[in-house]
Simulated scan of single mutants.
Amino acid sequence: MTKPLRLVVTNPRMRSGTAIPLAWATQLGPFTAWLRAGHRSERTIYLRTYHLRRFADETRVDPFDVTTEVLVDHLGSRAWSKTTRHSIRASLRVFYGWAHATGRMMTNPAHLLPTFSPPLGQPRPAPASALAAGRATGDPRVRLMVELAATVGMRCGEVAHAHTSDLRETLDGWSLLIHGKGSKLRTVPLNPGLAVTLRALPRGYLFPGQVDGHLSASYVSKLVSAALPDGWTAHTLRHRFASASYSADRDIRAVQLLLGHASVATTQVYTAVPDDALRRAVAAAA
């Protein structure tokens, strides 16, 4: 049997020279355009196409020759975490739903894939010692990244995109307009000290770089993780912000707005219940 023509497609986040069949390469373009037309974020588009490229490279089956059995074998024969398996399953379902809806396939081989719920996350706020270590780093740029994650609750991508023009003055003080996931905007108040620091910066991106004029989210994440003790990341600083904010008034809706979550259920994953609340609950039952 003649082997399918191979097209080398490289991506800076993938292993160099990853090769996928030409049949796949010609379909990923229209699929990506369809995702953008649906206003999917660039991060989501990257994740979906990354999963599909890996699937194509590992199975070597043309996209419209794929059967449910091929998909099940791909999902069931690898030692992935439940979170990873759930994400890859979602990418395959979206792609084959698109292929079926647009007439590229008469059936949808992903329609009958086994269902399962993603694992429930647990709050993991960085401790005070981790925050202190981040604030003690010798690089002022990284110290500011740590501060934005820990006291404003910003994601790495939001930190990377922050611009001095996003500063807003209100009757109550200074706030920062944050460009969140899915092009959603939110405004978060700044503590006075951080506001002074940001206002003193030169006009432009807070962290200039080579990606559209600013650093990439992955590089921000790498820098912050390197400044923190082992096991703690920028994301755990965001968890710390969520948990501390919740402790102030026990207002989960306020924390949801500060974090930019679409659902309170997601916010609950970020907010650790204060120890004193647990102790009071136990004492009340005694």
Rank of each mutant, 00 (worst) to 15 (best):
K184R: 08
K184T: 02
L185W: 11
T187I: 12
T187E: 14
T187V: 13
P189L: 04
P189Y: 05
P189Q: 01
N191H: 15
N191K: 14
N191D: 12
P192N: 06
L194G: 05
A195S: 07
V196C: 11
V196H: 13
T197F: 05
R199W: 10
R199Y: 07
L201M: 10
P202K: 09
P202Y: 11
P202V: 14
R203F: 14
R203W: 15
G204Q: 10
Y205W: 13
Y205D: 03
Y205C: 07
F207V: 03
P208S: 10
P208G: 09
G209H: 07
Q210V: 11
Q210K: 08
Q210F: 14
Q210W: 08
Q210L: 07
V211R: 14
V211I: 05
D212G: 15
D212L: 14
H214C: 08
H214D: 08
L215R: 07
L215V: 13
S216C: 06
A217V: 08
S218W: 07
Y219I: 10
V220R: 01
V220I: 13
V220L: 06
V220T: 03
V220S: 03
S221K: 06
S221Y: 14
K222W: 09
K222F: 11
L223P: 03
L223H: 06
S225K: 09
S225Y: 15
S225Q: 12
A226F: 13
A226C: 07
A227K: 01
A227T: 04
L228R: 05
P229D: 11
D230M: 14
D230A: 09
D230C: 08
W232V: 03
W232K: 03
A234P: 05
A234Q: 10
A234D: 08
A234M: 07
A234L: 09
T236D: 12
L237A: 01
R238L: 02
R240A: 05
R240K: 13
R240S: 04
F241G: 00
F241L: 04
F241H: 04
A242Y: 01
S243F: 03
A244S: 14
Y246I: 02
Y246C: 00
S247K: 13
A248S: 12
A248H: 10
R250K: 06
R250W: 04
R250S: 05
R250I: 04
R250L: 13
D251N: 10
R253K: 10
R253D: 00
A254P: 01
A254S: 09
V255T: 00
Q256L: 00
L258R: 00
